[in-house]
Simulated assay, not measured.
Amino acid sequence: MRLKNAKLDGDPLKSIDKPSPMTKPIRFDLPDLKLFAAVATAGSLSKGAASLPLALSAASSRLRQLEHRLGLHLFTRHAGGVRLTPAGETLLEHAQRILRAAQDAQQAMNCLNGEQQESLRLYANTTANSTVLPGLLGRFLVDRPYVNVALVECPSREVTLAVERGEADLGVIDSGFEPPGLLTLPMRHYRLAVLVAPQHALAQQAVVSFRELTQHDLVGLPEASAMQGFLKKMASLAGVDLHIRARAPSFAAIARLVASGVGAAVVPESTGLDYRDTMGLALVPLSDEWAGRELKLCLRPWESQPTTVRELAAFLSGLD
């Protein structure tokens, strides 16, 4: 049986005899699959070969041999280069998985031999950094001495932009953000509560509603923070105003302002418990249903991520 009609950037592929599966077993090797994937991605034999780099004649010969072993044409020629045939599309899906698995295996062996250190960039908002993230990250790193993490704190909106631009490998954001084009995974739930000085009018209450809280002076995060934006939105929906007397860049600074009697502050409950116990402040639960919040992970498409990024994402989201 003869297969016809394929050219790669002007380099015609010869007709290929379809081998019998009994006499010509299918064989793949990593260099051939790497070349095939490079040409498929570039849409051009010459560009794909140059990206490796590999001489054009050698690339053409390798692909002809691969097609011969398969008994199938993988590309068809068009004015701008080449495009995948249905068989080529199927092979590309498998080739990408094989190449990724090979890379992961080599990386794992390098790490075990102490030959390679991996550096990850994790961007997270203030809430994540002041609650569950440091503890979780610590447990992840203890078991992986070859991994180093640069932890950067910034508002959720900046976190998503950093992930989109490739400046961050992984981000932790508030549940109010659903960045298009990024994968999001649930991380942890938390509740909001009100932190006040012991002498504050709300200090002895069992619970407080948000509407009642807005009748008092407040201490908050910067306006660009996700939590502050969320509280502003809740105030607008309730038809009330927020009287922010002071803004601070961290919950630690907010707690000191609260202790000085400047005002009350809405903080994650777990964070507030620490300041209650260490600074003698009072912590009052918010009664509103929306006080239950969620942190989420965001990252670029899962299939494109290195093994360690996927491991960290699975660990932080509880998927491992």
Results as ranks from 00 to 15, higher is better:
residue 6 A to D: 13
residue 7 K to E: 13
residue 8 L to M: 13
residue 11 D to I: 14
residue 11 D to K: 12
residue 12 P to Y: 02
residue 15 S to I: 00
residue 16 I to L: 15
residue 20 S to G: 13
residue 27 R to T: 09
residue 29 D to I: 06
residue 32 D to Y: 05
residue 34 K to D: 14
residue 37 A to Q: 01
residue 37 A to W: 01
residue 38 A to S: 15
residue 38 A to R: 07
residue 46 S to M: 03
residue 46 S to K: 14
residue 46 S to T: 15
residue 48 G to E: 06
residue 48 G to H: 08
residue 66 L to D: 08
residue 67 E to V: 00
residue 69 R to S: 12
residue 71 G to E: 13
residue 74 L to I: 11
residue 76 T to I: 13
residue 76 T to D: 14
residue 76 T to H: 14
residue 79 A to Q: 12
residue 81 G to N: 11
residue 84 L to K: 07
residue 84 L to I: 05
residue 84 L to A: 11
residue 85 T to W: 09
residue 87 A to M: 08
residue 90 T to I: 07
residue 94 H to E: 12
residue 95 A to Q: 05
residue 96 Q to D: 09
residue 97 R to G: 07
residue 98 I to P: 00
residue 101 A to G: 10
residue 104 D to S: 11
residue 104 D to Y: 05
residue 110 N to K: 15
residue 112 L to M: 13
residue 112 L to A: 14
residue 117 Q to H: 10
residue 118 E to V: 15
residue 123 Y to A: 11
residue 129 N to I: 02
residue 145 P to L: 06
residue 147 V to S: 10
residue 148 N to D: 12
residue 148 N to H: 11
residue 148 N to A: 10
residue 151 L to K: 00
residue 155 P to A: 03
residue 158 E to D: 15
residue 160 T to H: 00
residue 160 T to Q: 11
residue 161 L to Y: 08
residue 161 L to S: 13
residue 161 L to F: 08
residue 161 L to E: 13
residue 163 V to W: 06
residue 163 V to N: 00
residue 168 A to C: 08
residue 170 L to N: 02
residue 176 G to V: 02
residue 177 F to A: 07
residue 181 G to S: 06
residue 184 T to H: 09
residue 187 M to G: 02
residue 188 R to N: 09
residue 189 H to V: 02
residue 190 Y to D: 04
residue 190 Y to E: 01
residue 201 A to N: 07
residue 201 A to V: 12
residue 206 A to S: 14
residue 209 S to V: 03
residue 212 E to V: 09
residue 212 E to A: 12
residue 213 L to E: 04
residue 216 H to V: 01
residue 217 D to T: 04
residue 225 S to D: 15
residue 229 G to Y: 03
residue 232 K to E: 11
residue 236 S to F: 11
residue 240 V to L: 03
residue 244 I to M: 09
residue 250 S to W: 00
residue 256 R to W: 05
residue 264 A to D: 09
residue 266 V to C: 10
residue 271 T to R: 01
residue 278 T to F: 06
residue 281 L to P: 04
residue 283 L to P: 09
residue 285 P to I: 06
residue 285 P to W: 05
residue 287 S to R: 08
residue 288 D to N: 11
residue 289 E to W: 01
residue 289 E to K: 10
residue 290 W to N: 09
residue 292 G to H: 14
residue 296 K to R: 15
residue 297 L to T: 05
residue 300 R to I: 02
residue 308 T to W: 05
residue 310 R to Y: 02
residue 314 A to C: 12
residue 317 S to H: 05
residue 319 L to G: 06
residue 319 L to V: 10
